[in-house]
Amino acid sequence: MASIRILGTGGTIASRSTGGGGLVASERIEELISTLSRRHTVTVRDLMVSGSYRLQLSDLRVIAQAARNALLDSTVDGVVITHGIDTMEETAFLLDLVHASPKPVVFTGSSRPLDSASPDGPHNLEEAVNAAASPDLRDTGVLVSFGGVVRSARGLRYASTLAANPFAGGTEVAHFIGDSLHVTARPLRPAPLPLPNEAFDAARVEIIDCSVGTGTDLFSHAVHAGADAVVLAGTGLGNAGPGFTEAVQDAVRAGCFVVLSSRVPEGPVIPTFGDGGGIDLVRAGALPAGDLKPPQARILAALLTSQPATPEQIQHVLTASPSGSNSS
């Protein structure tokens, strides 16, 4: 029997229908644990009760600090965090970046609310507790357990709004067969970064999408409005249209970091094309995001620019962060 700390933040798993007002996160974590099998000892703490689409960077800092405090408790073997699925990929990734303990942190949530005919939250929470309690998942960092599959936080993305398991990407670390957890891979772990500080709360990092005919006006506005960094959601291997090479160069000269990601769901940024493509954007000062997609690249940029970091340090983290895994 393991001792697991459950931290509640809200989300669909804590939501009920208000009729015409839609679903609203309203239930505290004590209500959610009533169906647990009690195979393990659990202690609970509510950090907030909110839909994850409402969270601010300051909330993510609170979650990260609470998880760190729980991990430092010698009586705690692992941590579970209940969270809305809208932005779970961002919060989980932030915690993975700063994770400095062998104990696992496991995020979970639900696709259906508590008062639906068949809520999935109770089963997901049961599996997340079992994953956090597993000695086989020590030293695997921050994970997301949902619909019987346990994935790494890095690379995770919300891929389907209606699927029972809405997540894709990342490394599949384990899966459940019945009540049994089967570990299939162990993510490679980078050195942890410092916890976010108060400056993180006010970090300004914007995402600019590059599509057919997209101009540089919004990009330049973000820079002039004081953005600490801008993430370009480039096309393909990391490209942007006419004018972006010059706009990136101007942004970098003004002290604004530019991170080049890709809007493509799978695969890394590999600067390949000239004529305003990735090769020229990088020469202008953009930092390739590797395999990070725009939402997670934004979280990394917010963390690093708030500490602060140099372009060389940011590029080192982007290139040093692992994308592979060790098979079990």
Rank of each mutant, 00 (worst) to 15 (best):
I270E: 14
E198V: 00
L232N: 02
V223W: 09
L162E: 14
I270P: 02
D179V: 13
A233R: 13
S220W: 01
H182S: 07
F176K: 12
P196I: 07
G236D: 06
G278P: 13
A203E: 02
F257W: 11
A247C: 05
T216W: 03
P192V: 08
G238I: 03
C210D: 02
T171M: 05
V212A: 12
P187C: 13
T214C: 05
S261H: 05
N239A: 08
E266R: 08
D250A: 15
R204Q: 11
A254R: 14
T216K: 10
L188G: 01
A163N: 10
A254W: 01
L260K: 05
V259S: 00
H175N: 09
A247D: 02
V212Y: 09
T272L: 09
G215T: 14
V258T: 07
T235S: 10
V264W: 01
F176R: 13
A247M: 07
G170Q: 13
G213D: 13
Q249L: 07
P242N: 11
V258S: 03
R204H: 09
A199T: 04
E172G: 07
V258C: 03
F167R: 04
F200R: 09
G267R: 02
V264A: 11
V183Q: 06
D275A: 14
V252Y: 12
P166F: 09
L188H: 08
I177P: 00
D209F: 05
N165A: 10
Q249E: 15
L195T: 03
G243E: 03
A168N: 12
V248A: 02
F200A: 06
D217P: 03
G241R: 05
G243I: 04
P268I: 06
R204P: 01
V231W: 00
P265S: 06
L218K: 01
I207S: 06
T171K: 08
A225F: 04
V252C: 13
F273V: 14
